[in-house]
Simulated scan of single mutants.
Amino acid sequence: MKYEEMKAEANVSTVMQFVLLGFSELPNLQWLLFGLFSIIYIMILIGNSLTIITRLDSALQKPVYFFFLANFSSLEICYVSVTLPRILVNLCPQDRSISMLECSIQMCFFLMLATIENFLLAVMAYGCYVAVCNPLHYPLVLNHRMCIQMAVDSWICGIPVQTGPICQIFSLHFCHSNQIDHFFCDVPPILELACGDTSLHKLSVYVVVLLVGTIPSVLILASYRKIISTALRLPTSRGLAKVFSTCSSHLLVVLLFFGSATITYLRPQSSHSPGIDKLLYLFYTIVTPVFNPMIYSLRNKDVLTALRKLLLK
């Protein structure tokens, strides 16, 4: 299906919907991609749902599992559901149009959930720090009430941080084109379509990205500095192995999430190209949520035991 590029010259407000080009440059692979992304989506839903259900096991009624299993897996399901269903819709009937309202809602939820994930990873790092550095105080510091409070704060903090920049972006006029060379509504491709000088808006977006990335990163690094310092003082290799088993899952998730986000958003402008950008965004938004349930399960004996019990039932 051929889409005409809309121009707005006399009236810059005529662009009221966008066209997500997605993978239109691969017309012969549309159904293959549809099948592949459908399988990935089902895997993410099943993997994270099983991770949430395992928390019902009596052996997993601990704060660390509350953070790792219930909250983070719920977040991953929401996070992927913002982008993947839209990709499937674009691939199947070839209707790639999206209204400005739908585009703004998608962008809003995507950025809010990404921000929540940043802060939730920082909260998890604090949980690992308490477990390793203050194990005797662990039940008192991370009691049930504190866990709920920290989880709720992580979810709430993402809402106001991203609302302002999104309102700013969609208050702009779009006159260059209505075609977004991307598979979902994200900030950089949308700003490329705006009229006039958008350098101030781009600067404000980078400031927000740096803030929501830097603050959790500093908290995570501070927690792991204390954890490593404590681990190095342990007299036996057994204690070191216990520290590694406690924190390794979280550390792998942090490296995967922040590493892919840094490469995706903070690369030099000269190295950007539509094809590479789409691959990096796919890894950041879709591939990492596939790995996360595997990391939780395969690196944790308690979770594996709970999963076996669940599957046997």
Rank of each mutant, 00 (worst) to 15 (best):
C167F: 15
C167Q: 03
S245F: 12
I116L: 10
L203K: 14
M6Q: 15
I77L: 07
V303L: 06
D181Q: 11
H176T: 13
G239N: 12
E102G: 04
C175K: 01
Q17T: 14
A306W: 02
V243F: 09
F109Y: 10
I190Q: 07
I98M: 01
L279Q: 00
T115S: 15
V89H: 00
H182A: 15
I166H: 00
I148N: 05
A10D: 15
T198N: 03
N143A: 01
G35T: 01
L36F: 15
S260P: 02
H182Q: 01
V123H: 09
V132Q: 09
K309G: 02
Y296Q: 09
R267E: 11
S104H: 03
S217T: 07
D153Q: 15
K301L: 02
I166F: 09
Y296K: 05
H137M: 14
A231P: 05
N143V: 11
F183D: 09
T288W: 04
L142W: 07
I98Q: 09
L256R: 10
R238P: 03
P85G: 00
M6E: 14
L50M: 12
R267Q: 05
Y281E: 08
I263C: 01
T285R: 10
I295Y: 08
S99A: 08
C108G: 12
L200W: 00
S97L: 14
L240Q: 15
I116S: 02
H250R: 04
P165H: 09
S249W: 08
Y281Q: 12
L200P: 08
L33H: 08
K62D: 06
S154L: 07
Y224W: 02
L282P: 13
D302E: 10
F18Y: 05
S171V: 03
C108V: 13
Q162T: 05
I44Y: 01
I148G: 02
L203R: 15
P188Q: 07
T214H: 11
L298Q: 02
S24G: 01
F170D: 10
P293Y: 07
M294L: 13
I190G: 02
I87H: 01
V212R: 12
L232N: 14
L101F: 03
L251R: 00
I105C: 08
L191E: 07
L221F: 12
V130K: 09
H250W: 07
T288Y: 09
Y126W: 10
V80K: 00
L101I: 06
W31K: 05
S249M: 10
I105G: 03
F174C: 02
P165Q: 04
S73C: 04
